[in-house]
Computed example of a mutant assay.
Amino acid sequence: MNQAVIEVSVVIPVWNEAQHLQQTLKTIAGFIWQSTKSFELIIVDDGSTDETWAELMVVCSEIPQVEGIRLSRNFGKERALCAGLEHAQGQAVIIMDGDLQHPPELIPQMIDYWRSNTAKIIECVKKRRGKESFGYGMGAKLFYWLIQKLTRYDLHGASDYKLLDRQVVEAWAIMPERITFFRGMTAWLGFSRVQIEFDVAPRIEGTTSWKFTTLVRLALHAVVTFTSWPLSFVSIIGMMFFVGSVILGIQTLYMKLMGVAVTGFTTVILLLLSMNSMIMLGIGILGEYIAAIYDEVKGRPRYIVSQKTRNVRSDENISDQ
């Protein structure tokens, strides 16, 4: 029997979502059913330490279209997304979060846009970011402003909630880098796209697992993987200090020849502090790029799968497209 063609894959990375996983997946599956019976729901358990995998097994027994992928440890959301995308078989692939902050009621609309050949990428952008701390919101704005200035990609309001055509997924799959930034990578790919605005809903339960240090690390990865401008910045600052030192040296020599006592002890201290600060900043920037190169050349896999569910699909569960 020929394997049935899957029309839509939905990829959801989860981490410690046991309390609401069953409700979330049943809600999402209900909205997918409104548009297609030919789908798969791929849940990537990113090394959860609670009962997420056990809850997922229960859902798999109730909804045949659900498949689970369990990673051997917590590799981070970006790499969990990689696992889901690389296992997805659908002609279109939807990526979304597992806390219902990405409204599943948009799924039928996304699929309709895709079926009408309106665009290869249907991306949902945040009209309102929802409830978050002042510091988190300001940090997000600063991050997207830096990305736009450094890379020329406008990611304001961007989210991971997207539908990608099979052609886009295959183009994404040939990018071999180990350090990934999904939103930036899909922007870099190009292709025709349309945007759907949405308001970020409250989490169905609990609080976000994202920490400030995690967000800072993601921001550093995004900058390092998408622009070399910080390296040029170090060179520019170095040239500015060199020019300043030449001017200061000429002034000092002139005053010496004129017999004027050179005071300016405070100036010397300030110059030393500022120059040393810039040197340390330059070393830090270089270190980030060297660390990225080190991660790439090691060639380790992005993730390790420790377990998969073994759902056997039949033509009654997935119909031909």
Rank of each mutant, 00 (worst) to 15 (best):
L106H: 07
Q89W: 12
F134H: 12
L85F: 05
W114S: 01
F181I: 09
Q109A: 03
W145F: 13
T186L: 14
Q89I: 04
T118R: 14
A140F: 12
M57N: 10
L100V: 11
Q148Y: 15
R183L: 11
D97L: 13
G130Q: 13
D165L: 12
D99I: 10
R128T: 12
G157Y: 14
R178K: 14
K77A: 07
P103E: 01
T186H: 13
I94H: 00
V168D: 00
Q89D: 01
Y153N: 05
F143A: 05
G76D: 02
K126A: 12
S61L: 10
L163S: 00
G76S: 09
L81C: 04
L189W: 15
W188E: 07
E132K: 15
E62G: 05
I107G: 03
C82Q: 04
E123C: 09
M96W: 00
I69N: 05
L155W: 06
T186Q: 13
A119N: 08
V168P: 00
M110G: 00
I94C: 01
P103Q: 02
R115A: 01
Y113W: 08
W114G: 00
F182V: 13
I122A: 00
L146N: 06
P108G: 02
R73T: 04
K131R: 15
A119L: 13
C124P: 00
P108T: 01
A92P: 00
I107Y: 11
I63P: 07
I69C: 09
K120R: 14
G139Q: 02
Y136S: 05
R129T: 08
P176Q: 08
L163V: 00
F182C: 08
K162T: 09
A173H: 09
S61H: 12
I94P: 00
Y136L: 09
L81H: 07
S133P: 14
W172H: 11
A187R: 15
D112L: 06
C60K: 12
Q167F: 15
E78V: 10
V59S: 07
I107W: 13
V168M: 01
D97R: 14
L81M: 06
L146A: 05
S159R: 08
Q89A: 06
Q109I: 03
G84M: 03
W145S: 06
V59Q: 08
Q65F: 15
I179Q: 11
I69S: 07
K131S: 10
T186D: 02
Y161K: 08
Q65E: 05
E132V: 10
G98C: 08
P108E: 04
E86Y: 07
M96N: 00
R70K: 15
K141I: 05
A140G: 02
R79P: 05
E105N: 02
G135P: 06
I122H: 01
H156R: 14
A187Y: 14
P176G: 03
L71Q: 08
G84P: 07
V125F: 15
D97Q: 12
A140D: 02
K131W: 15
I121Y: 01
T186E: 03
L100D: 03
G76N: 07
R73N: 06
W188R: 15
D99K: 14
